[in-house]
Design a binder for these strands. Sequence first.
DNA 1: TGAATAATTGAACAATTGTTCATATATTCA
DNA 2: TGAATATATGAACAATTGTTCAATTATTCA
Lengths: 119, 119
Amino acid sequence: MDRTEVDRCDCNVIHKDIVDAVKGKMPSEENLYDLAELFKVFGDSTRIKILWALAESEMCVCDIAALLNMTQSAISHQLRVLKQARLVKNRKEGKVVYYSLDDDHVKQIFSQGLSHISE
Amino acid sequence: MDRTEVDRCDCNVIHKDIVDAVKGKMPSEENLYDLAELFKVFGDSTRIKILWALAESEMCVCDIAALLNMTQSAISHQLRVLKQARLVKNRKEGKVVYYSLDDDHVKQIFSQGLSHISE
DNA sequence: TGAATAATTGAACAATTGTTCATATATTCA
DNA sequence: TGAATATATGAACAATTGTTCAATTATTCA
């Protein structure tokens, strides 16, 4: 590891080569941060439900609100988060805004997650 | 949708069949909650870094701390979270506790996440 | 135009989270 | 045994988060 950092225990000396090798293989700080930000979006059951619903069918805001038995406002706030993460897209038809999935990976990420849970 | 719930806009009437169909296909409330809890664990860059490091090599607590330039305590707290989520396991060798990945899906979930980010 | 509808937005609030600090536990070895 | 080391833990703190409420915007249609 960098000589600018303090060795905090003997392991750091003994395992120096292993730690150095791992450090060399780690993705960039930025990529790891973005990855965490993405999973943070999946880490809320309201958003998970919205994504799951949209995986079945395009829906408007008030339909999602009715489906999840929550307020339109709460759903709208969460749809904003999902859109910023480029996980959903929308189209406007008169007063009504229809949302749908904007990513092929969502279903696959869900599938891996479910596999882990049901182990 | 349930007649016990209030229709909050005309869409709920117009789209009734679609919403009903989606409702019928949704996984259980419990599964969706567990899925969100799992992704919540992935939704922190410290934990992402730890998982990524362990995907390369088994490591002890103080090595991870040195690698990420964080305190031993902070790492230990996060390893606890990861262990509760059954994402890492550990073995003790004297004073030293070695942690490693405990799940085959981690790398695949990462891979899907990265695909989305680099779109 | 003006009332009604669908959606968005911003502020506020409680609840949750990640780190730090101090302390406790477990193990080695002189 | 007692000092040193590696890890774990609990309390406390600031920071972040999700929902609610009230108000605003955009659109339809009578």
